[in-house]
Design a protein around this nucleic acid. Structure first.
Length: 553
RNA sequence: GCCCUCGUAGCUCAGCUGGAUAGAGCGGCGGACUUCUAAUCCGUAGGUCGCAGGUUCGAAUCCUGCCGGGGGCACCA
């Protein structure tokens, strides 16, 4: 267990003991788990807990009277690690920990290696994570870069936290939009304008030139559409790969309709068995209102064609059949109306609606000349993700997309991104990593290995830790809780934020604490250890964001 | 009209399952390069946390209403 978790356990245990003292044998309402947090201001110790304030209502005693009792219990549990404590404010207990505790923290980071801050999931699950799933009727647009970065990073974080994650891209290769694409390509190939509700983009003309049989009347439009989709899907995969985003599967919608019976047929049968399906006006309906939807939904239209909703239901069933305990879908803001019906359908299928999560991604607005550009795939007015990557690079794009919470709309100022690339905070984080690499290179691998050895002497006779060292170490040790939070709240942006904070704390350390050549030898060893622990942690978090960690810049 | 969501510094955003005097980056202003990397650092200015009530020992955070932005209310995909 990591040092901060141990500390938290000690606080919880101490709080339980205090509660037991006063209300002997009484079950009572257990107070919610006490916080262990970094005080905002300096001079308030290394950590603070609000346990006394939470115990106050249950005990009927003022928080400031409870805190000293808590301190006694805590002192017993922490021994020499706890240097001092004080009751502050409305009843916080501020804790100051020893230098030795901090040194042990660095050893923990080094020993844990790549597993640092990992495997914390209390209930590891097999998760199916679906993201982007943009229609293969055009290139990947810039806005999808947000979905891609988010889904990919979330997958990495969940995995590091101990879950098993399967990433899928749902390919809508069936239905009218695909047919419209085919019609548009055919029209261009014949030198005509695409139909008014078709696709107008320049890429359609490219497809008209490259797709086999585009202009050949003997080749059905549906076949042209199929080939165009194939070509576009290939292009989408290339963009994703360039962006550092990988999928375990590109799941074809068409396969849901294939076979006798098809997955769609089986899903509908399953729903019929559970009694949630009825016929009305010649169509087949699912009674989603039973499970909280506004209105019932059509599965099969009057003309016998299954709706898109039917495919979605079948897809959920497919994921369930494949053994995923949890389904997470990152969908666009324009899909938020689907949440209720999807959950209702999932429950109708016999699934637990809580194990189906639809995360609503807010929009990305590209701002140029102080105006938001309107993006329409059909009219062909859009910025491609590839263009964005050409201009501001993969690392900067990913970091920018990941910096803010997925449920907030994001303004991406293209003018700024183009002209001030070096101002992106991602370079700040990468720079810290490169700087450490430079320091370590100066020392040489042998000296570094020696400093990291289990029996290396890290403490100079009279040396206390520098405040910058203590701050940096506590930031390192905050990562396990940070990852747990990011994983549980599906919030990669927390990791982006953390990486910036870690880089800041390292830079302060770098400013105040000389490493190479510092006397005595043990102090140099100790600082090398801090540098290595920090460098690895920076590389770890950048990795979770899908951003590179360069050795030099 | 009904439902969802967001509103925090000039700009872009953290902080939000209640905690101490609300933060960062960029931009502004003033400084620092014989240095372990200046893609850096130091200092400084900048806030009615949309508005109004409520709950609480304590509210940017929870509840209600209002205002404003975005989205959704198909036998479309």
């Amino acid at each position: 267990m990591d040092p901060v978790s141990e500390l938290r356990e000690a606080v919880i245990s101490a709080a339980a003991a205090v509660r037991g003292d006063v209300h002997e044998g009484e079950a009572g309402a257990a107070p919610s788990a006490p916080n262990l947090e970094r005080p905002k201001r300096s001079g308030q110790g290394d950590y603070a807990t609000n346990a006394a304030m939470l115990l106050a209502p249950a005990l009927g005693v003022a928080p400031r009277e409870i805190a000293p009792r808590l301190a006694v219990e805590l002192a017993q549990r922490l021994g020499e690690a706890l240097v001092s404590h004080e009751v502050a404010g409305p009843g916080f207990l501020n804790l100051t920990l020893s230098d030795a505790w901090h040194r042990a923290g660095v050893r923990h980071v080094l020993t844990a290696g790549e597993q640092f801050a990992g495997g914390g999931a209390s209930n590891p699950e097999r998760i199916n994570l679906e993201f982007v799933s943009a229609n293969p009727t055009g290139p990947v647009v810039a806005a999808s870069g947000r979905h891609a970065a988010y889904g990919d990073s979330l997958a990495r974080i969940l995995q590091h936290h101990g879950h098993s994650v399967h990433r899928e891209y749902y390919v809508n290769d069936a239905g009218t939009q695909v047919l419209k694409l085919g019609e548009s390509v055919r029209a261009r190939a014949l030198g005509q304008e695409p139909p008014p509700d078709g696709y107008q983009g320049a890429y359609v003309a490219e497809l008209a030139a490259t797709v086999e049989g585009a202009a050949d009347p003997a080749v059905a439009v549906s076949v042209v559409a199929e080939r165009a989709v194939e070509s576009l899907l290939e292009r989408i995969k290339q963009t994703m790969s360039r962006y550092g985003v990988s999928y375990d599967a590109y799941f074809s919608e068409r396969t849901l309709h294939a076979g006798e019976p098809s997955t769609v047929d089986r899903a509908i049968e399953q729903l019929q068995r559970t009694g949630h399906v009825y016929e009305h006006d010649g169509a087949t309906w699912l009674r989603t209102t039973t499970f909280g939807d506004d209105k019932d939904r059509v599965l099969v239209r009057g003309d016998g064609a299954p709706t898109y909703f039917a495919s979605d239901v079948a897809y959920m069933e497919s994921k369930r059949e494949r053994g995923f305990e949890r389904q997470i879908l990152a969908v666009g803001a324009d899909h938020h109306g689907y949440v209720a019906r999807m959950k209702a359908a999932f429950e109708s299928l016999g699934g637990d609606p809580d194990s189906l999560e639809l995360l609503i991604m807010q929009l990305v607005h590209l701002v140029e000349n102080n105006e938001r550009t309107k993006m329409s795939k059909r009219r062909g007015e859009f910025v491609e993700l590839d263009e964005l990557l050409d201009e501001i690079g993969v690392d900067a794009t990913r970091f920018f997309m990941l910096q803010s919470s997925h449920d907030r709309t994001l303004d991406l100022n293209l003018d700024l991104a183009r002209s001030h690339t070096a101002e992106n905070p991602v370079y700040y984080v990468q720079y810290a990593h490169a700087r450490i690499a430079s320091v370590l290179a100066r020392l040489g691998p042998e000296r570094v290995a020696q400093a990291l050895a289990q029996d290396a002497d890290w403490s100079s006779p009279d040396g206390e830790l520098h405040p910058a060292e203590r701050e940096l170490i506590k930031k390192l040790l905050a990562l396990p809780a940070e990852i747990a939070e990011a994983a549980e709240r599906r919030a990669p942006h927390r990791i982006a934020n953390y990486s910036l904070e870690l880089a800041q704390d390292f830079t302060a350390f770098y400013r105040d604490c000389k490493v190479v050549g510092v006397e005595p030898h043990a102090l140099e060893s100790w600082r090398i250890a801090i540098c290595v622990a920090t460098q690895r942690t920076l590389a770890l978090v950048l990795g979770l964001l899908g951003v590179s960690a360069p050795e030099s810049m």
